[in-house]
C-alpha cells in the first residue's frame, strides 16, 4: 500500500498541519475534552466516535526463562474522518492496528487497516472486545483479557490479569498537553501481569512479565507549535512513573508526569516537574533518534538513566515512530517502555 496515500487517508490534514501526524490540527465539529473529567465504566472502555482520535495502547516488558528481555506492543487506533457512526461502508471511522515484538537484536512490526461500520474492526465495552481482523484484546471484563496478533514473520498469544486498579492521569483523567490548554482524556491500567507465547522466526518463546495499557481520546491533543513527544512508562521497585515531554517549535518542552504508588494512588505533576534529556542518539532508519535518556522527577528522588534494549525499535508503519522496551538504572532500577514520535 502506498504509504503516502495512507497518511493522506488517515489524517487528511497532515500536509498543512503542524505537529506529529496532524495531531495538532484544529477540529471543528468534533467534541473536545472538558474538565472535570467524569468516566463511566465499562462504557468508557468502548469507543467515543464524537472525538477524532482514540487508542487502546498496550505495551509489555517480558522475560523468557533464560532471562532474555522482550518487548511487546499491541495498539488499536481509531481515527474519525467525521463525527459519529455511519452504516456499513459509509462509517467515517477508520481503524489502524500496530503490533510489534522487540528482542535485543530484532524488531518485528506489522500493521492492519480497516474501515469501521462493517465489522472488520471495532471495540465493544462489555464484554470487552477490541479487534482488527484476527487480532484481538478481549475478555469477560477489563481485568481479564486475552491478546493476540499476527504478522508476516511473528505472532503472539497472551493472557493478561489486572493486579491493581485503573489509574487516572492529570486532573482525574483530564490530561493537559500544552500551555494553551490542549488536553485529552487519559487513564491507564498499569498493573497487568502477562504471560503467553511469542511465535518468532526462530521458534516459540514462553514469556512472562508486566503490561501497561493506556486509554486516551481527544480531538486535538497537541498544540500547533508542538512537533512530537517522548513518552516514558517506567516500572520501578517503589512504584510506577508515567512521564512525557512534548517538543515545541521554539525548542522548549511541555512536560507532565504521574507517580503511581503500588496500591494505585497517583500524584500528578505539572509542567516542569518531570525532565528528560537525551544522553545518546542512534541512527535509526536514516534519522538520529535519542535512545539513551537522563530522566528526573526530583519530588520522588528519581534520577535515572534510561537505555533502549534494542535501539533499532523503529515502527515502519504508515506513520513511523520509535517504540520499544527500556532498561532503567541509577537511583531506581527497573524496566519500562519508551515511545518517541515526530523524529523526521
Amino acid at each position: 500500500m502506498n504509504v503516502k496515500a495512507l497518511i493522506f487517508l488517515l489524517l487528511p490534514s497532515v500536509v498543512s498541519a503542524q505537529g506529529f501526524a496532524g495531531l495538532g490540527t484544529a477540529t471543528e465539529d468534533f467534541a473536545t475534552p472538558q474538565r472535570p473529567a467524569a468516566f463511566s465504566f465499562p462504557a468508557d472502555h468502548g469507543p467515543h466516535p464524537d472525538y477524532r482520535i482514540e487508542w487502546w495502547y498496550l505495551t509489555a516488558n517480558l522475560q523468557a526463562d533464560d532471562g532474555t528481555d522482550y518487548g511487546l506492543q499491541w495498539t488499536l487506533f481509531r481515527t474519525a474522518l467525521a463525527v459519529g457512526e455511519g452504516d456499513g461502508w459509509t462509517s467515517p471511522q477508520l481503524w489502524m492496528g500496530h503490533a510489534a515484538v522487540t528482542t535485543p537484536d530484532a524488531h518485528y512490526v506489522t500493521e492492519r487497516l480497516a474501515r469501521g461500520g462493517i465489522g472488520q474492526a471495532g471495540v465493544t465495552a462489555a464484554p470487552f472486545e477490541a479487534w482488527i481482523d484476527d487480532w484481538q484484546l478481549a475478555g469477560p471484563n477489563f481485568d481479564d483479557l486475552r491478546m493476540t496478533a499476527s504478522g508476516p514473520d511473528f505472532s503472539y498469544d497472551m493472557e493478561l490479569t489486572a493486579q491493581g486498579p485503573l489509574i487516572f492521569h492529570g486532573e482525574d483523567g483530564y490530561s493537559v498537553k500544552s500551555a494553551e490548554g490542549q488536553a485529552s482524556y487519559y487513564y491507564s491500567q498499569p498493573f497487568y501481569a502477562i504471560e503467553g507465547i511469542l511465535n518468532l522466526p526462530n521458534g516459540e518463546v514462553a514469556v512472562t512479565g508486566q503490561a501497561w495499557l493506556d486509554r486516551e481520546w481527544s480531538s486535538q491533543p497537541l498544540s500547533e507549535n508542538q512537533t512530537g513527544w517522548d513518552w516514558f512508562s517506567l516500572s520501578l521497585e517503589e512504584g510506577k512513573l508515567m512521564g512525557f515531554r512534548l517538543r515545541q517549535t521554539d525548542d522548549t518542552y511541555y512536560t507532565a508526569a504521574t507517580w503511581i504508588a503500588p496500591n494505585g494512588e497517583t500524584t500528578a505533576y505539572p509542567d516542569g516537574a518531570f525532565t528528560a534529556e537525551p544522553t545518546n542518539t542512534t541512527s535509526v532508519n536514516g534519522r538520529d533518534v535519542p535512545t539513551g535518556w537522563s530522566v528526573q522527577l526530583g519530588d520522588r528522588g528519581v534520577d535515572v538513566d534510561v537505555y533502549a534494549i534494542n535501539p533499532q525499535a523503529w515502527m515502519t508503519t504508515s506513520i513511523p515512530y520509535w517504540e520499544g522496551p527500556v532498561v532503567i538504572e541509577g537511583s531506581h532500577q527497573g524496566r519500562g517502555y519508551l515511545e518517541m514520535t515526530g523524529y523526521e
Partner: peptide
C-alpha cells in the same frame, strides 16, 4: 477498498 487493497486505488494518485 483503498485501506486494504494491495495497491490502493491502483492508478489513482492520492498525492
Amino acid at each position: 477498498d483503498a485501506l486494504t487493497a494491495p495497491n490502493g486505488l491502483g492508478p489513482v494518485d492520492f498525492t
